[in-house]
Protein backbone atom coordinates (compact mmCIF):
# COMPACT_ATOMS: atom_id res chain seq x y z
CA UNK A 1 0.00 0.00 0.00
CA UNK A 2 2.88 2.31 0.75
CA UNK A 3 4.38 1.81 -2.68
CA UNK A 4 1.25 2.70 -4.60
CA UNK A 5 0.65 5.63 -2.33
CA UNK A 6 4.14 6.86 -2.93
CA UNK A 7 3.57 7.02 -6.66
CA UNK A 8 0.32 8.89 -6.29
CA UNK A 9 1.45 11.61 -3.95
CA UNK A 10 5.06 12.01 -4.85
CA UNK A 11 4.83 14.60 -7.57
CA UNK A 12 8.25 15.90 -6.67
CA UNK A 13 9.29 15.89 -10.31
CA UNK A 14 7.04 18.91 -10.68
CA UNK A 15 8.94 21.81 -9.12
CA UNK A 16 5.78 23.87 -8.65
CA UNK A 17 4.27 21.14 -6.54
CA UNK A 18 7.10 21.01 -4.06
CA UNK A 19 7.25 24.75 -3.57
CA UNK A 20 3.58 25.43 -3.02
CA UNK A 21 2.71 24.87 0.64
CA UNK A 22 0.04 22.31 1.38
CA UNK A 23 -1.69 24.69 3.74
CA UNK A 24 -1.23 28.40 4.03
CA UNK A 25 -2.94 30.99 6.19
CA UNK A 26 -2.18 34.61 5.38
CA UNK A 27 -2.97 37.28 7.95
CA UNK A 28 -6.11 35.56 9.12
CA UNK A 29 -8.29 37.37 11.65
CA UNK A 30 -11.40 36.02 13.25
CA UNK A 31 -13.56 37.19 16.10
CA UNK A 32 -16.57 35.70 17.82
CA UNK A 33 -18.96 38.23 19.31
CA UNK A 34 -16.42 41.08 19.39
CA UNK A 35 -13.79 38.84 20.96
CA UNK A 36 -10.71 38.56 18.80
CA UNK A 37 -9.81 34.86 18.64
CA UNK A 38 -7.25 34.90 15.83
CA UNK A 39 -5.18 38.03 15.40
CA UNK A 40 -3.28 38.18 12.12
CA UNK A 41 -2.28 34.55 11.99
CA UNK A 42 0.03 33.43 9.21
CA UNK A 43 0.93 29.77 9.03
CA UNK A 44 2.40 27.74 6.26
CA UNK A 45 2.65 23.96 6.19
CA UNK A 46 5.00 22.56 3.58
CA UNK A 47 4.34 19.36 1.73
CA UNK A 48 5.27 16.43 3.90
CA UNK A 49 5.62 18.61 6.96
CA UNK A 50 4.00 18.10 10.32
CA UNK A 51 3.09 21.30 12.10
CA UNK A 52 2.47 20.99 15.79
CA UNK A 53 0.24 23.66 17.27
CA UNK A 54 0.63 24.26 20.98
CA UNK A 55 -1.29 26.63 23.15
CA UNK A 56 -3.58 27.10 26.09
CA UNK A 57 -7.08 25.77 26.09
CA UNK A 58 -9.36 28.27 24.40
CA UNK A 59 -6.50 29.77 22.45
CA UNK A 60 -8.04 29.21 19.04
CA UNK A 61 -6.30 26.02 17.93
CA UNK A 62 -9.43 24.18 16.92
CA UNK A 63 -10.60 27.33 15.21
CA UNK A 64 -7.57 27.31 12.91
CA UNK A 65 -8.26 23.73 11.94
CA UNK A 66 -11.89 24.47 11.25
CA UNK A 67 -10.90 27.40 9.06
CA UNK A 68 -8.73 25.16 6.91
CA UNK A 69 -11.67 22.85 6.29
CA UNK A 70 -13.88 25.80 5.41
CA UNK A 71 -16.24 24.99 8.28
CA UNK A 72 -15.75 28.59 9.35
CA UNK A 73 -14.88 31.63 7.28
CA UNK A 74 -12.32 34.19 8.45
CA UNK A 75 -13.18 37.85 8.92
CA UNK A 76 -10.15 38.80 6.89
CA UNK A 77 -7.07 37.17 5.43
CA UNK A 78 -6.63 34.34 2.97
CA UNK A 79 -6.55 30.57 3.32
CA UNK A 80 -4.91 28.39 0.71
CA UNK A 81 -4.93 24.63 0.37
CA UNK A 82 -2.48 23.21 -2.16
CA UNK A 83 -2.10 26.70 -3.55
CA UNK A 84 -5.82 27.04 -4.10
CA UNK A 85 -7.43 30.05 -2.44
CA UNK A 86 -10.44 28.59 -0.64
CA UNK A 87 -11.35 31.66 1.39
CA UNK A 88 -14.42 32.58 -0.65
CA UNK A 89 -15.37 29.09 -1.72
CA UNK A 90 -18.98 28.11 -1.40
CA UNK A 91 -20.00 24.90 0.30
CA UNK A 92 -20.23 23.15 -3.06
CA UNK A 93 -16.81 24.36 -4.18
CA UNK A 94 -15.32 23.21 -0.87
CA UNK A 95 -16.35 19.59 -1.40
CA UNK A 96 -13.51 18.54 -3.72
CA UNK A 97 -11.00 20.30 -1.45
CA UNK A 98 -12.33 18.45 1.58
CA UNK A 99 -11.97 15.15 -0.23
CA UNK A 100 -8.21 15.38 0.13
CA UNK A 101 -8.26 16.40 3.80
CA UNK A 102 -8.70 14.03 6.72
CA UNK A 103 -9.81 15.48 10.02
CA UNK A 104 -9.79 14.03 13.51
CA UNK A 105 -12.22 16.02 15.61
CA UNK A 106 -11.41 16.88 19.17
CA UNK A 107 -14.72 15.49 20.40
CA UNK A 108 -14.69 12.53 18.03
CA UNK A 109 -17.86 13.65 16.24
CA UNK A 110 -18.74 10.10 15.25
CA UNK A 111 -22.08 9.51 13.57
CA UNK A 112 -23.87 7.98 16.50
CA UNK A 113 -26.78 6.47 14.59
CA UNK A 114 -24.61 4.09 12.57
CA UNK A 115 -22.07 1.42 13.49
CA UNK A 116 -18.32 1.79 13.76
CA UNK A 117 -18.00 0.07 10.40
CA UNK A 118 -20.27 2.60 8.71
CA UNK A 119 -18.48 5.47 10.39
CA UNK A 120 -15.12 4.41 9.06
CA UNK A 121 -16.54 3.45 5.67
CA UNK A 122 -18.28 6.79 5.30
CA UNK A 123 -15.88 8.53 2.96
CA UNK A 124 -15.36 5.56 0.67
CA UNK A 125 -19.06 4.95 0.51
CA UNK A 126 -19.65 8.57 -0.42
CA UNK A 127 -17.07 8.25 -3.17
CA UNK A 128 -18.93 5.22 -4.49
CA UNK A 129 -16.34 2.51 -3.97
CA UNK A 130 -17.23 -1.14 -4.17
CA UNK A 131 -18.37 -2.92 -1.06
CA UNK A 132 -15.53 -5.47 -1.15
CA UNK A 133 -12.95 -2.73 -1.30
CA UNK A 134 -14.66 -0.74 1.42
CA UNK A 135 -14.74 -3.76 3.67
CA UNK A 136 -11.07 -4.48 3.10
CA UNK A 137 -10.03 -0.91 3.80
CA UNK A 138 -12.24 -0.56 6.87
CA UNK A 139 -10.88 -3.75 8.35
CA UNK A 140 -7.34 -2.63 7.67
CA UNK A 141 -7.92 0.77 9.26
CA UNK A 142 -9.63 -0.68 12.31
CA UNK A 143 -6.84 -3.20 12.78
CA UNK A 144 -4.46 -0.34 12.53
CA UNK A 145 -6.09 1.52 15.41
CA UNK A 146 -6.46 -1.77 17.25
CA UNK A 147 -10.23 -1.88 17.18
CA UNK A 148 -10.87 -4.81 14.87
CA UNK A 149 -13.30 -6.43 17.29
CA UNK A 150 -15.41 -3.30 17.71
CA UNK A 151 -16.33 -3.24 14.05
CA UNK A 152 -20.02 -3.93 14.56
CA UNK A 153 -20.47 -1.91 17.73
CA UNK A 154 -22.33 1.37 17.89
CA UNK A 155 -20.32 4.45 18.88
CA UNK A 156 -22.30 4.78 22.09
CA UNK A 157 -20.92 1.44 23.29
CA UNK A 158 -17.31 2.60 23.05
CA UNK A 159 -15.09 4.28 25.58
CA UNK A 160 -13.79 7.79 24.97
CA UNK A 161 -10.41 6.61 23.76
CA UNK A 162 -11.93 4.00 21.49
CA UNK A 163 -14.15 6.65 19.97
CA UNK A 164 -11.14 8.81 19.32
CA UNK A 165 -9.43 5.93 17.56
CA UNK A 166 -12.47 5.31 15.39
CA UNK A 167 -12.32 9.01 14.53
CA UNK A 168 -8.71 8.55 13.49
CA UNK A 169 -9.55 5.54 11.33
CA UNK A 170 -12.35 7.52 9.72
CA UNK A 171 -10.00 10.38 8.92
CA UNK A 172 -7.26 8.17 7.50
CA UNK A 173 -9.37 6.14 5.12
CA UNK A 174 -9.04 7.05 1.48
CA UNK A 175 -5.42 8.17 2.05
CA UNK A 176 -5.92 11.95 2.20
CA UNK A 177 -2.82 14.01 1.45
CA UNK A 178 -3.51 16.48 4.27
CA UNK A 179 -4.40 15.45 7.79
CA UNK A 180 -5.65 17.62 10.60
CA UNK A 181 -5.45 16.17 14.10
CA UNK A 182 -7.23 18.10 16.81
CA UNK A 183 -5.81 16.77 20.08
CA UNK A 184 -5.88 13.14 18.94
CA UNK A 185 -4.04 11.91 22.03
CA UNK A 186 -5.97 13.70 24.75
CA UNK A 187 -7.28 11.17 27.24
CA UNK A 188 -5.43 8.22 25.78
CA UNK A 189 -2.99 5.97 27.61
CA UNK A 190 0.70 6.58 26.83
CA UNK A 191 1.20 3.48 24.61
CA UNK A 192 -1.81 4.34 22.46
CA UNK A 193 -0.78 7.96 22.31
CA UNK A 194 2.62 6.81 21.16
CA UNK A 195 1.10 4.63 18.45
CA UNK A 196 -0.73 7.64 17.15
CA UNK A 197 2.43 9.69 17.09
CA UNK A 198 4.23 6.91 15.24
CA UNK A 199 1.41 6.85 12.76
CA UNK A 200 1.83 10.55 12.11
CA UNK A 201 5.59 10.08 11.74
CA UNK A 202 5.04 7.28 9.28
CA UNK A 203 2.61 9.32 7.21
CA UNK A 204 4.98 12.25 7.28
CA UNK A 205 8.18 10.43 6.35
CA UNK A 206 6.97 7.67 4.09
CA UNK A 207 3.90 9.07 2.42
CA UNK A 208 4.61 12.77 2.23
CA UNK A 209 1.40 13.60 4.06
CA UNK A 210 1.19 17.15 5.35
CA UNK A 211 -0.38 17.41 8.74
CA UNK A 212 -1.37 19.73 11.53
CA UNK A 213 -1.20 18.23 14.97
CA UNK A 214 -2.90 20.18 17.72
CA UNK A 215 -1.87 19.09 21.17
CA UNK A 216 -1.28 20.10 24.76
CA UNK A 217 1.14 17.36 25.58
CA UNK A 218 4.88 17.88 25.46
CA UNK A 219 5.33 14.11 25.19
CA UNK A 220 3.77 14.18 21.73
CA UNK A 221 6.02 17.04 20.72
CA UNK A 222 9.04 15.09 21.88
CA UNK A 223 7.96 12.01 19.96
CA UNK A 224 7.07 13.75 16.77
CA UNK A 225 10.10 15.92 16.54
CA UNK A 226 12.80 13.49 17.54
CA UNK A 227 11.99 10.35 15.60
CA UNK A 228 11.75 9.48 12.00
CA UNK A 229 10.55 6.49 10.07
CA UNK A 230 12.42 4.66 7.36
CA UNK A 231 12.08 1.40 5.59
CA UNK A 232 14.93 -1.04 6.33
CA UNK A 233 16.48 -3.60 3.98
CA UNK A 234 13.76 -6.13 4.78
CA UNK A 235 11.08 -3.66 3.81
CA UNK A 236 9.86 -3.10 7.36
CA UNK A 237 9.04 0.29 8.74
CA UNK A 238 11.41 1.20 11.56
CA UNK A 239 11.60 4.23 13.79
CA UNK A 240 14.93 5.79 14.51
CA UNK A 241 15.93 8.42 16.99
CA UNK A 242 17.22 11.61 15.55
CA UNK A 243 21.00 11.39 15.86
CA UNK A 244 23.75 13.95 15.91
CA UNK A 245 24.60 13.20 12.33
CA UNK A 246 21.05 13.37 11.07
CA UNK A 247 18.65 16.22 11.66
CA UNK A 248 16.20 16.25 8.82
CA UNK A 249 13.03 16.00 10.70
CA UNK A 250 10.21 17.69 8.96
CA UNK A 251 8.38 18.95 12.00
CA UNK A 252 7.82 22.46 13.21
CA UNK A 253 6.19 23.76 16.30
CA UNK A 254 3.95 26.72 16.55
CA UNK A 255 2.82 28.21 19.80
CA UNK A 256 -0.17 30.46 20.21
CA UNK A 257 -1.13 32.87 22.88
CA UNK A 258 -4.09 35.24 22.95
CA UNK A 259 -4.72 34.69 19.26
CA UNK A 260 -1.18 35.50 18.23
CA UNK A 261 1.67 33.25 17.19
CA UNK A 262 4.41 33.72 19.74
CA UNK A 263 6.72 30.99 18.56
CA UNK A 264 7.39 29.17 15.31
CA UNK A 265 10.37 26.88 14.87
CA UNK A 266 11.92 23.50 15.52
CA UNK A 267 11.98 21.67 18.82
CA UNK A 268 15.58 22.69 19.52
CA UNK A 269 14.60 26.31 19.05
CA UNK A 270 11.61 25.74 21.30
CA UNK A 271 13.76 24.35 24.08
CA UNK A 272 16.25 27.15 23.84
CA UNK A 273 13.66 29.87 23.44
CA UNK A 274 14.07 32.89 25.69
CA UNK A 275 10.42 33.81 25.60
CA UNK A 276 9.13 33.61 29.16
CA UNK A 277 5.74 32.27 28.21
CA UNK A 278 7.25 29.52 26.06
CA UNK A 279 9.54 28.43 28.89
CA UNK A 280 6.71 28.34 31.36
CA UNK A 281 4.47 26.45 28.96
CA UNK A 282 7.09 23.74 28.45
CA UNK A 283 7.53 23.32 32.18
CA UNK A 284 3.78 23.32 32.70
CA UNK A 285 3.64 26.48 34.76
CA UNK A 286 1.05 29.22 34.61
Amino acid sequence: MFETQKIETNNSSDPFWTVVPAIELRDVCLSFDDKLILDNISVSVRRGECKIILGRSGGGKSTIVRLILGLLKPDSGRILVDGEDITDYSEVEMMPVRQKIGMVFQEGALFDSVSVYENVAYRLREQGHEEAEIEREVTRMLEFVDLADAINKMPIELSGGMRRRVGIARALIGDPSILLFDEPTAGLDPPTARTICELVIKLRDLQDVSSIFVTHEMNNVENLSSEYATVNEKGEVVFEKEGDKLCLINTEILMMRNGKIIFNGTDEQLKSSDEVYVKRFIRGER
Binding site: L69, E91, R98, F105, Y122, R170
Partner: peptide, 14 residues
Protein backbone atom coordinates in the same frame (compact mmCIF):
# COMPACT_ATOMS: atom_id res chain seq x y z
CA UNK B 1 -24.08 20.25 18.79
CA UNK B 2 -22.10 17.01 18.71
CA UNK B 3 -20.28 18.29 15.59
CA UNK B 4 -21.58 15.46 13.44
CA UNK B 5 -22.74 17.94 10.83
CA UNK B 6 -19.26 19.43 10.75
CA UNK B 7 -17.79 15.95 10.44
CA UNK B 8 -20.12 15.23 7.58
CA UNK B 9 -19.09 18.40 5.81
CA UNK B 10 -15.45 17.64 6.52
CA UNK B 11 -15.88 14.26 4.87
CA UNK B 12 -17.17 15.93 1.76
CA UNK B 13 -20.92 15.47 2.07
CA UNK B 14 -23.43 18.26 1.77
Amino acid sequence: VSQQIDAMRALGTD
